[in-house]
Nucleic acid binder design. Structure first.
Lengths: 146, 146
DNA sequence: GACATATAGTTAGTTATGCAACTATTATAA
DNA sequence: TTATAATAGTTGCATAACTAACTATATGTC
C-alpha cells in the first residue's frame, strides 16, 4: 500500500510545512474569487503535473500522499473539467499516464500567484526558524506514527 | 521529506498541538482494534462532551472548528449509535443541547487510554518547547487566515 | 510454461466536509 | 408594536476521503 497517511498532505509543500484547514479554505475562496472553479485538491494534482507532466496515477498517489481510490476520483473530476486526460502507458498496460490538456496550462500562473499570496498572508509574523521547527516536528510525528 | 497537515482544527487541541493525519489514522486503527467502532471525528465530539456535558451544537462548532452543518450530521450519526441525545434548551428554543447517554460514559476511559498511548508514541522525542512552538504557529496561521 | 503473487487502477459503500438555501426562534430598531 | 436583522439548526448538493473487493496486467518461481 502506498504511504497515503495524509488526506491533503499536498499543502505541506506549498506552505512551507505550516498546514491548516484555515489556509486551505482561504485559498479555495481566493481561487473562486478569481473565477477559478477548482478545488484545492484538484489544484494539488495540477500543481504536480505543472512540475512534471505525464505522471502515472500511482506516482500521483505517492507525491500527494493520497489513496489510489482518491486519485482515481480526483482524476475523474479533473478530466470532466477538461483539464487532464488519461493516456495508457505503452510500456506497462496497467498504467495510466495523466497529461495536462491545453486548457490547463493557462491556469498555472494565475493559481501560483494566488497560492503564493495566500501563503504569504498566512505566514505573516512567523519566522523561518519556527517554520523549520514545525516541519521537523511533523517529520518526527510522521516517523513515529507509521 | 514528509508531508503533514492537520485535517481538522479539532485534532489540534486534542494531541497537544501536533496534528497529523498519520496520528489520526493510527488512533482510528487502535480504536478499532479495541472494538470501538467510532470514527475520530465522532470521538472528538465525545471528547468535548466528556469534558463538559450538555454543550449546544453551536458551542461544539466553535470548540471543534467545524461547520454547523458538519456538526448537525456528526451528532446525527453519534445519536444513531446511541451515544448522545439532543435536548432542546428551555432558555432558548432555537438551541439543542447535546448530552451523553449512559452508553457513552464507559467509553471514556478506554478511549482516553488509547488516545494517550497513541499520542505518547507519536510525540516521542519531541520536547514541550517544540510543541509550544507548533501550537503557537498553528494559532497564528489560523488568525492570519480567517 | 504454469501457478502464485504483486502491482495499477476502478468501483461500491460509508463517513465527513463546505456552501447555500431554508425554517424557526430571538433580538433589535423604527 | 411591528418590521427587520441576527442566530441555531436542518437539508440538499457536490467534493473528497478510506476500506475493501474487484479486474487486468506483470513478474517471479518452480
Amino acid at each position: 500500500m502506498s504511504n497515503n497517511q495524509f488526506k491533503r498532505g499536498e499543502l505541506y509543500s506549498v506552505i512551507n510545512g505550516v498546514a491548516s484547514t484555515a489556509v486551505a479554505r482561504r485559498l479555495q475562496k481566493n481561487f473562486r474569487n478569481a473565477g477559478l472553479e477548482i478545488t484545492i485538491e484538484q489544484w494539488s494534482i495540477l500543481y504536480h503535473l505543472w512540475k512534471e507532466d505525464g505522471l502515472s496515477q500511482q506516482e500521483l498517489c505517492t507525491r500527494t500522499f493520497r489513496d489510489k481510490a482518491s486519485i482515481t476520483r480526483l482524476i475523474d473530476n479533473i478530466e470532466k473539467l477538461g483539464l487532464v486526460e488519461r493516456i495508457a502507458s505503452k510500456d506497462d498496460r496497467r498504467v495510466n499516464l495523466v497529461y495536462l490538456t491545453d486548457a490547463a496550462k493557462p491556469l498555472q500562473e494565475a493559481t501560483y500567484n494566488i497560492a503564493n499570496q495566500t501563503m504569504n498572508e498566512a505566514l505573516q509574523g512567523i519566522s523561518k526558524e519556527e517554520i523549520e521547527i514545525v516541519k521537523s516536528v511533523f517529520q518526527r510525528v510522521y516517523e513515529n506514527s507509521k
